[in-house]
Simulated scan of single mutants.
Amino acid sequence: MDKPLKTPPPYPIASVDHALRAATILQLEGSASVSQIAERLGVARSTAHRILAMLVYRDFAVQGEDRDYRAGPVLELASHSQSQVSRLRAAALPHLHRIVDLLDETANLTVRTGDTVRFIASVECGQALRVGSREGMVFPAHRTTAGLLLLAELSDTELDEVYAAERYGERAADRPDLDRLRAELGRLRSNGFAVNRGRSERGLAAVGVPVRDRDGTALAGLSVSLPSVRYDPHRLRSLVATLEAAARALERDFAEEGS
């Protein structure tokens, strides 16, 4: 039975969450100062310093001669400043902020690797009831808005390779029904956008569109996430139009930055 996977813990530990988010920032962005980490986490500079000191102790971070912190050896997938993911994230942030300004809902940028997706950027809205930052989080691709959009780009043969039964072994229950998935992806190709209501997390709705490179290949998914109680199907056309405008602007900026 297909069921939502991610459920926030009933008793979240703020210090652990702060440390994990700090590590994610270093992994995705390459480096950051104490002040930058403090601002991003919304904590005092002294608190940010203690968090970073513990990350250094556990080899999740290292401190350079310039006093900035960078991803340590434990974070093997740390992005270098000129990597495509890092450049894409940097180009996307102003557009994510613009989406939040226009819609007052949380905006995200997501990339796919195999059968999973990773949120590489997330900007929260200011509403009291809101979807929190998903930056750095990993989800099964077929359970997320952006993941479905990116899977829709694959041929039947490529989809079979991504979800080959032998890849799952004891995790066979995690493998989606490919006939149902193909039918859904076919509808998404026609629509050009995706809607997710409670599929990845209970009480959450999301709408997304693809972000493409110069040759038309989908690089990422751009989405807005909101509490299900605030999702209104009558707003769908407006949400999609806002996201598509942001995606086209991001595509132009990313192409210019890489030229």
Rank of each mutant, 00 (worst) to 15 (best):
A71Q: 01
L28T: 01
T144R: 01
I51W: 01
P4R: 11
I120L: 10
T7I: 14
D59S: 15
L103S: 09
D104P: 00
S200E: 14
G72Y: 04
D17S: 13
G208S: 11
D179K: 09
F139K: 04
L185P: 04
D174W: 11
A14D: 14
S155T: 15
A241H: 11
L5H: 08
E201F: 05
L159K: 08
A92C: 11
L181I: 09
K3M: 11
V100W: 07
H142S: 05
R21E: 10
T24S: 14
V117H: 05
P210H: 08
L178C: 07
A141Y: 08
D177G: 06
V16N: 08
V240I: 10
A90Y: 10
L109M: 05
R21W: 00
S83G: 07
D66P: 03
R87D: 07
R235Q: 13
R98Y: 06
A141Q: 07
P12T: 09
R202C: 01
Q27E: 08
G216P: 13
E158S: 11
G221P: 08
R118N: 00
P140L: 14
A141T: 06
R171C: 04
P10E: 13
A91S: 15
A61T: 06
R130S: 11
Q63T: 13
G114R: 06
P233V: 10
R45W: 00
R199V: 14
V195R: 11
A172W: 13
R89S: 14
A91C: 15
L28G: 01
A71I: 01
Q84S: 13
S238C: 01
Y168V: 09
Y231E: 05
E170W: 07
L77I: 00
V34S: 02
L102V: 14
D68T: 12
L129P: 00
H142R: 08
G64H: 06
D232C: 02
G221I: 10
V211K: 07
V123H: 07
H49V: 02
A121S: 14
G186C: 04
E251C: 09
L219Y: 09
T110M: 10
L26G: 00
A78C: 01
S223P: 03
E161W: 02
E135S: 08
L188T: 13
R167Q: 12
A172H: 15
S133W: 05
M137E: 13
T106H: 06
A22H: 02
S33V: 03
L149P: 02
R98W: 12
K3H: 11
V43T: 11
L159R: 08
A183Q: 14
G216V: 13
R202P: 04
L178Q: 07
E65K: 11
L159P: 03
L28F: 00
G169W: 09
S83K: 04
D215R: 15
R187Q: 14
S46H: 10
L20R: 12
L226E: 09
G169V: 08
E257M: 13
D59A: 15
A23L: 04
